[in-house]
Design a protein around this nucleic acid. Structure first.
Lengths: 97, 97
DNA sequence: TATCTATTTAGCTTTTTACTTTAATAGCCG
DNA sequence: CGGCTATTAAAGTAAAAAGCTAAATAGATA
């Protein structure tokens, strides 16, 4: 792992390392969701969700699709998707804990 | 992924998401190293390396072994080790980028 | 014991981050 | 058009983290 890789990966990890953002990524693993949908699950304000979504968007982790006056968010970065799966396996399905 | 998992994983990601700490974890993937060894590679001060090592230790990601007046650090958390490998594969060896 | 090296601790300053509130934008539908 | 909804943007405050410096500890060796 070279130095510029380190920087890139550290940036991505930092973006993912906030509980709300991580939960959003979890929710988006299987489906698209609007800000309102996400707010329901995460139990915070629309503004807060929107802020976190735009941080995820800046990192190119998620993308969106507009329809009427809803915006449907989805995970765009396949590597992040794979990483989420690995973490799920390591932290949620194994014996220890 | 349930909520307490989210918190645990987010904490771990946050710990890993600092460039110096990520680099330290990289270096420790294959071998043990002392603070001095690490300082050479990371190009900072001993105090700074030591600070980051203790953050990694608090998260139980790394452990150490004392010998004479050197402390040899190593990765203790197997899950983190596996995560590092996955990230290496996704971000360093594949085509896109 | 005195001194060197490796390591840790503590205090301090600066920067970053999170969250809230409030206001603005933009598309739908009566 | 006018009001409704969903969403975003901006600004402010409070809390956390980063990195530096200097000092303290602890073991090894002369």
């Amino acid at each position: 792992m070279e130095n510029n890789h380190i920087e890139v990966i550290a940036g991505m990890l930092k973006t993912m390392s906030h509980p709300i953002r991580l939960k959003i990524l979890c929710l988006l693993q299987n489906k698209e969701m609007t800000v309102g949908d996400i707010r329901e699950e995460v139990k915070t304000t629309n503004a807060n969700v929107s802020q976190h979504l735009s941080i995820l968007r800046n990192q190119k982790i998620i993308g969106f699709r507009k329809e009427a006056n809803f915006i449907y968010n989805r995970i765009d970065d396949v590597r992040v998707l794979e990483l989420m799966q690995t973490m799920g396996k390591l932290y949620c399905q194994n014996a220890g804990e």
